[in-house]
Amino acid sequence: MEIWLIIIGAGLVTFLTRLSFIALQGRWQPPELLQRGLRFVPPAVLTAIILPELLMPGGQLHLGLDNLRLLAGLAAAATAWRTRSVLWAIAVGMGSLYLLQAVSGWLAR
C-alpha cells in the first residue's frame, strides 16, 4: 500500500513542478533569486548523484586504478565533453567498464 502512496505522491510533485511556470505565466513574477538559482539545479543534483557512484562503489571511498567504475566514468565524461551526446557517453562508459573488467580478470589469473 505504501508503495502506491509514494508513487502517486512523487508523480504529483513531479507534475506540479512541470506545470509550475506554465500555469503561473502572466500571473506571477518569480523572485529573481529563484530564477537565477534554478540554473544550478541540474549540475548540482546530477553531480551529487554521479560522484558517489564513481568514487564510492559499494559505499566505501575507493580512489585508485583498481576502481574500474571511476576509470570508466572518466572515459564517459571525456566522451560527453567531446561529442555532447548522452548516447555516446553511455556507450563508451559501458564499453570501458566491460573492457576493464575483462583486463583485470585476466590480470588476476
Binding site: R69, G73, I90, Y98
Partner: peptide
Amino acid sequence: WSLDFSLPLTFIGLVVPAL
C-alpha cells in the same frame, strides 16, 4: 552486466556538456 552503471553514465552525458 552492471546495468545499474548506466544511470551515472546518463547523468554524465547530460551534465558535462552543460558545464
